[in-house]
Computed example of a mutant assay.
Amino acid sequence: MRGAEWRVAVVATVNGDNTVTTTDGIIARRWESYLMPAVGDIIGITQSGGGSWGTWGRWAAGPGHRAIQTGTALLSWSAASVATMTVTFPTAFPVAPKVFPNLATGDGAVARWSCRAYQITATSFLAYVSAPAATSTTTGTNIPVQWLATTL
């Protein structure tokens, strides 16, 4: 039996068995509070007296990792009741985030249109806007679709 210790490490691999592997090869079991681990996370790891490693979670994120991103995409369509557009995140997320889109403005009939996010991946989502009735068609030009995406 030896004494316990702790130190800082960087995640190299996220494993499917609730463990992570650090850049120096240590496999550490994730505690329940460490949600959505990502490569590049800076974590605290601790070793039991019996030699097992565990991590209580992220201390900071590595380069390029952002938990929240926002943006605006301009969407145009002509004589339609539905329009779509692929929006690419400025920085890829480690996993598919939750996305919250909003039609920021729109005159006339466009003001009643709704917006949803579909086909969400770690790098992009499909902005889907639609008229209140399938038979209602209109034209929209450079309509701003604001969005917020988060892994929190």
Rank of each mutant, 00 (worst) to 15 (best):
T84L: 06
C115T: 15
T46L: 01
P144M: 01
A117K: 05
P101W: 02
T46E: 14
N18Q: 06
L152F: 11
G49E: 14
K98H: 12
N102Q: 12
W53M: 06
V110Q: 07
K98F: 14
D107R: 09
F89N: 08
S48W: 03
T139Q: 04
S114I: 12
L103V: 15
T91H: 13
A9R: 02
R30Q: 14
G62Q: 00
T55Y: 03
I43H: 02
A67I: 14
G44T: 15
V95C: 11
I45R: 00
A96F: 07
P37G: 09
L148Y: 06
A104E: 11
V8C: 03
R7H: 07
W6M: 09
W31P: 00
L74H: 08
V82Q: 07
T91C: 10
L148R: 10
N18S: 11
G54T: 12
A38P: 03
A83D: 06
D41N: 10
G40I: 05
V82Y: 04
W53G: 11
T72L: 06
T150G: 04
M1S: 12
L103H: 03
S136M: 14
I68V: 15
S76Y: 06
G62T: 00
T46W: 00
T88N: 15
M1L: 06
A92W: 04
A83E: 05
P94Y: 11
E32C: 04
V95K: 11
L126R: 08
M85S: 15
A12K: 01
L103A: 09
G57Y: 00
T141K: 03
P90Q: 04
S48V: 06
V20A: 02
D17R: 01
V8P: 00
R58F: 04
A133F: 13
P94D: 09
A60T: 09
V39P: 09
A109I: 11
R112Y: 14
M1T: 10
W147C: 06
G108C: 03
V11H: 00
Q69I: 08
A60K: 04
G57C: 05
H65C: 14
V11Y: 03
D107S: 14
V20D: 03
N15F: 00
D107I: 08
P37C: 08
S124R: 10
P144N: 04
T19L: 01
V8K: 09
S33M: 11
A92C: 04
T19D: 04
A28M: 00
S76D: 08
S114W: 00
L35V: 15
L35N: 13
D41I: 07
I68A: 10
G57I: 10
T137L: 02
N15W: 00
S130V: 11
D41V: 10
G49R: 08
S114V: 12
K98E: 15
V129H: 01
R58L: 10
E32Q: 14
A96E: 05
G3I: 11
V110K: 01
G16W: 00
A80E: 08
E32N: 14
S33K: 12
S78T: 13
A133P: 00
V10A: 01
V10Q: 02
G64V: 06
T22Q: 03
Y118C: 11
V145A: 05
A109L: 13
I68C: 10
V87A: 04
G64I: 04
A111D: 08
L74N: 11
G40L: 01
A149N: 08
W147M: 03
V11M: 01
G49D: 12
T70S: 15
D41C: 07
